[in-house]
Write a protein that binds this DNA or RNA. Sequence first.
DNA 1: CTTGACTCTGGACCTAGGTGCAGGGTGCAA
DNA 2: TTGCACCCTGCACCTAGGTCCAGAGTCAAG
Lengths: 133, 133
Amino acid sequence: MSLSIGALARQAGVAIDTVRYYERKGLLAPAGRLASGYRRYGIEEIKQLRFIRRAKALGFSLDDIRELLAVSAERDVARVRRAAQHKLGEIEQRIAELEGIRVGLRALIDECPGHGHADACPILNALSKEPDV
Amino acid sequence: MSLSIGALARQAGVAIDTVRYYERKGLLAPAGRLASGYRRYGIEEIKQLRFIRRAKALGFSLDDIRELLAVSAERDVARVRRAAQHKLGEIEQRIAELEGIRVGLRALIDECPGHGHADACPILNALSKEPDV
DNA sequence: CTTGACTCTGGACCTAGGTGCAGGGTGCAA
DNA sequence: TTGCACCCTGCACCTAGGTCCAGAGTCAAG
């Protein structure tokens, strides 16, 4: 059984252009071709595209994923685990940043009466006042 | 007292190109000019650039900030507060997404022994297995 | 008057992850 | 044979928020 690029894209839930883009970026090996030049795919490529989708959903970049695919082909479990841990660290850091912003913004909103003088609005004051951030 | 673009950029802690970029984008009004064409700035612009920096640090995009500047010039406290609340909602949503990812990734890492067969690696399995996400 | 630092404009370039298009060829069913 | 859906390549374009550059003009100190 073999698939056209359109059929593959449908099966994997991505756009045709995305499949070609991933090939250019090295996330998919160059596809086999018919005499006409049409790409042909098998079951493996569906799996690989789904792998890519799931890894993206976990926050991995395409560069990360190319690494991950190489490492998983080597069946190097320890490296896969380290990569996952590294990504987890990045995600936790991003969460911490956003938490800081959330707390700051929440405090300003809670202090702001939502009416009255602009000079008394803690949001505008926080953004405008002298002391440097 | 008046400032060249370079002096302004130093005072505000941004790059010269960024000042011109903000002018193009409508975050700064077109500067006054000397006969030579050189831009001249006053104290107001330092404050405004610092306002922009702080708002960016709170997660506002440049488009948001242009709005915020217009609204704050109107001294419309209620709208400023609504804008802040809206942004807070976006940030909380983003945090929730990242939390979901964090939990998923943490669970996979905790289950992964970090050695042994790739077939038994929960990370690779989660990425590869059939059921669609 | 010269020198070095500064400024002007317009436009190209960067990252990430694609999307869209033109102009052409292919596959298949009626 | 016609008609339509599909596929090919290469390139331009998109968002966001800038950064960098060439080539030319300006300012101020010595």
